[in-house]
Design a protein around this nucleic acid. Structure first.
Lengths: 136, 136
DNA sequence: CCGTATCCTCCTAGATACTG
DNA sequence: CAGTATCTAGGAGGATACGG
């Protein structure tokens, strides 16, 4: 006995969520993950073979404030992309790593980061051309 | 006569830009393109076979304000991802389309949007579990 | 070492009104 | 139709100080 009708399964297979829609939760999720710090944290954790400590992450991502690092890690943990492990030693040790869900997001977001790094020269040329055409 | 030395070419082939670095222009570019409206606009233009008018885009992306739509389109145009064509008729007609550079960004960003749409249920479950573990 | 709490300052982005 | 201009509120995010 199926838990869903054929029609329901068909609808889900197509699109259960639509980020174009204003009130769709997937748009809010898109807004959350469309973030500089999210991208860099996920990529940093994804590159590393083992877990990463808080201070390691901070060093890997120069310029991130303590507040933004902690805050972003918390939301990523709550959203199930990052796992946080506390070792109650003195001094305390906290390790972060990607969950399976987080790893499923790694490839997409890595491509975005790489795109930015690889196409910077073209963007620079486009900006120069745009600005040159509109003097003053 | 080469315009760059072998060493310079090698360095560029590896990584000319590094988004992890605080002052690297590619991080600023990453910050720009890590944006809800950028994602939705690029995806909308990418789905469409022909060009899209301003009002078409506005309809495709419910909830976007006139200001954000115009502003985002301008920066995308300046960065060379979007081409803007004005037809001076009455009433005036303005068409937008992806440039080749913009199309090169379409696949990466589409995957991010799709990821959000497809993994929303798992994120929801993770949030519920997180919140349940921290009553109050 | 890894945070939390507080303050405080921008800057973003929405609302509104007006124009070629 | 497709914008521009102006105002303003709210939140994002940095700096700082303190705690387990």
């Amino acid at each position: 006995m199926p838990t869903r009708t054929a029609g329901q399964r068909r609808a889900e297979a197509k699109v259960a969520y639509d980020a174009y829609l204003d009130q769709c939760p997937s748009r809010q999720l898109l807004a959350r993950i469309s973030d500089k710090w999210v991208t860099l944290i996920i990529c940093a954790l994804g590159e590393h073979e083992t877990t990463m400590r808080y201070s390691e992450l901070a060093r890997r991502i120069p310029g991130v404030s303590q507040k933004m690092l902690t805050q972003t890690l918390r939301t990523l943990e709550r959203d199930g992309l990052v796992a946080r492990t506390v070792t109650p030693s003195i001094p305390p040790r906290v390790d972060y790593e990607l969950t399976p869900l987080g790893r499923s997001f790694l490839e997409p977001i890595q491509h975005v980061k790489c795109w930015a790094e690889h196409h910077m020269p073209e963007v620079d040329r486009a900006r120069a051309a745009y600005d040159a055409a509109r003097p003053e």
